[in-house]
C-alpha cells in the first residue's frame, strides 16, 4: 500500500505560539517559526510535511483553529492568512 500524503496548513494570524501542536506531533512535522504574526506570536510552521501520518493530533488539540490536515496526492506544508488586505 502506498504511503498516504497530507497537506498541513497553518493559519498564521490565528496562531498564538502555545506550542501544543509542536509538542504533540509524533513525527516532528512542526516547528516554531522565526517570523511574527500581527499579534506578535511566532507562528508554527509545517516544516516537514512529508513526515505527516495524518493523525491530526495538532488539529484536534489546537485551541485556536489555526492548524488542520487534509489528505492529498502530494505532501505539502502551507502557511496561510485569514485576514487579507
Amino acid at each position: 500500500m502506498p504511503a498516504r500524503r497530507f497537506i498541513v496548513t497553518v493559519v498564521a494570524d490565528r496562531c498564538k505560539e502555545c506550542g501544543i501542536c509542536i509538542a504533540l506531533c509524533p513525527k516532528n512535522v512542526l516547528e516554531k517559526g522565526n517570523k511574527l504574526n500581527w499579534k506578535g506570536f511566532h507562528y508554527t510552521v509545517p516544516a516537514r510535511p512529508e513526515q505527516c501520518i495524518g493523525c491530526r493530533l495538532c488539529e484536534y488539540n489546537c485551541p485556536d483553529f489555526a492548524i488542520f490536515v487534509v489528505e492529498a496526492e502530494a505532501a505539502k506544508g502551507e502557511t496561510v492568512w485569514a485576514r487579507q488586505a
Binding site: R14, K16, C18, F41, Y60, P63, D64, F65, A82
Partner: peptide
C-alpha cells in the same frame, strides 16, 4: 472575530 480572546494554550478552544 478570530483570533479569539482566549490566552495562548487555553483549553477552551480545544
Amino acid at each position: 472575530r478570530l483570533p479569539h480572546m482566549w490566552c495562548p494554550g487555553c483549553g477552551i478552544g480545544i
